[in-house]
Design a binder for these strands. Structure first.
Lengths: 212, 212
DNA sequence: CGAATCTTTGATAAGGATCAACGCGCGTGG
DNA sequence: CCACGCGCGTTGATCCTTATCAAAGATTCG
C-alpha cells in the first residue's frame, strides 16, 4: 500500500470535506473519487489540481489541470465522473451543490454565468479531444507548453508544477516519450531547461506553429 | 475540386441558412464551417450530422455525431469552433442564438435546462477524450459500437449511417485499422456483418467489457 | 547522507500508419 | 439492360512512431 493508497483510504473513511469551508490538501491527496456523490463542487484558492479517470488496468487519463480561481467538480449527474487530486499542496474552497439551486432561483444572471462556465469547459474538452485524437507526440507537448504558459506569471520561463507522468497522462503518451520529446525540443532550440521543472520557451513562434 | 469542395464553396457564397426555418442538407453538405459566426444553432429533425475539426495538413477529428432530436452548434464564443456537416441527407431546424437571451429572461427553468444540456455535452466530450487518450484500437471500436447501438432502434443489428472514414476520424484511427478491427471482432465472434453498414452485436457483453 | 522518487537515455518491441492493390455495390450512361 | 466508372471497404506488405523494458543520473526529503 503506497502513499496514495493511504490517503485514498483515509478519504473513504472521512468522506468528502464539509461544504463551505476552505481545506488544504497535501500533494497527491485525493479530493474526491470517481463515483463519489457530487454533493459539493470546488474552487482552487491556491495550488494545482488534476481531474482524472483510472481504467481497470491502471491506465490513467488526466482530464484537466486547475489553477487558482478555477472551478471544478461540478457534474451533470449525481456522481463525480472523474477523480480529483492535488497536484501540489493546495487550498480548496468547497461549495454545496444544492446551494446552486437557491442562487439560480434568486439571481437571473447567475444562471447564464453557469451556462457560460459549462460551455467554456466544453470548448476546452473538445480541444483536448482533437489534441488526443489527431496530434503527434511533438505537437502534443508543444501544445501543452503553450497552454501552460498562459498560466505562468513569468512569460519566458514556465514552471511545470506537475510530474512528467502527469503530463504524459494528460497527453495520452508515456513518461519516456514526454521526456524524449522535451530533449528533442531542446536539441532543436525550441526550449531550454534550466531544470527539469523549469522550461524556457526559446522559440515560442515555432512552438505555437507546432501546436497550430 | 471534389464534390465536398463544391458544396463548401456554395456555402461560402450563400452564407448560413436563415434562422427559424427547417432546412434539408444532402449527404456531406456543409452546415456551417469552423470560424463562421455562431448566430444560429441547430436541432436535427432527421438524419445524422457530424461536427469536426480540420487540421492544416488535412487530418480530421470528428467531435461528435448527432441524431434526430440532438442540438448542436451552440457555442461558448462568437464563432463556431468546429464545422458541421450532414453525414446522411438530413433535415435541420435552425434557431437564432439571440432568441436564447429572450427565452432565458422570461423562463427561469429554461436557463437550468441550458446548463444541464451543456453539462451533458461536457460529460460526453470528457468520455471521448478518455477514449482517444488511453484506449487501444479494439477498445475504441467496441466502445463506438456500444455507443451507437443506443441510437439504433433494433437492438441486435445496428446500422452505421457513417463511412469507415468517419468512424476512423471519430476514434483517432485510420480507415484501414477500423476495417481490420471489424474483421478481428468478427473472427472472434463478437459481431457479424450482414453487410458493411449493418453490424450484428453477437456478444454484447464482451463488447461492453472491451469498452469498459 | 541515504532512500525514494523523478527524469533521462538506450535498446528493443509492438501497435497502428502508410502504401498498394483488389473487390464490391451502385448509379449512370451508352 | 448491361458495362463501365467511382466511391467505399477489405486485405496484404512494410514502415514508423510510440510503447515497453531496463538502467543510470538527478533531485528531494527525511
Amino acid at each position: 500500500m503506497n502513499n496514495l493508497d493511504v490517503v485514498a483510504e483515509e478519504h473513504r473513511r472521512l468522506g468528502p470535506p464539509v461544504a463551505g469551508s476552505v481545506l488544504d490538501f497535501v500533494q497527491n491527496r485525493v479530493i474526491y473519487g470517481e463515483g463519489d456523490d457530487a454533493n459539493s463542487f470546488y474552487k482552487v484558492a491556491l495550488g494545482v489540481v488534476r481531474t482524472c479517470r483510472f481504467l481497470s488496468d491502471g491506465r490513467r487519463q488526466i482530464d484537466a489541470f486547475y489553477v487558482a480561481g478555477d472551478v471544478f467538480g461540478l457534474e451533470a449527474g449525481a456522481e463525480h465522473s472523474f477523480s480529483a487530486e492535488a497536484v501540489t499542496g493546495s487550498s480548496i474552497v468547497s461549495y454545496r451543490r444544492r446551494d446552486l439551486a437557491a442562487l439560480t432561483a434568486n439571481n437571473e444572471g447567475f444562471s447564464q454565468q453557469l451556462f457560460a462556465y459549462a460551455m467554456q469547459r466544453l470548448a476546452r474538452a473538445q480541444e483536448h479531444a482533437v489534441l488526443l485524437g489527431r496530434r503527434s507526440a511533438v505537437e502534443k507537448v508543444a501544445a501543452f507548453l503553450i497552454d501552460w504558459a498562459a498560466y505562468s506569471p513569468e512569460t519566458t520561463i514556465i514552471v511545470l508544477e506537475m510530474t512528467r507522468q502527469d503530463i504524459a497522462d494528460y497527453l495520452g503518451l508515456t513518461v519516456e516519450t514526454v521526456s524524449r520529446t522535451f530533449s528533442h525540443l531542446e536539441r532543436n532550440a525550441l526550449i531550454e531547461r534550466p531544470s527539469a521543472r523549469q522550461i524556457r520557451l526559446t522559440d515560442r513562434k515555432r512552438l505555437h506553429d507546432l501546436s497550430s
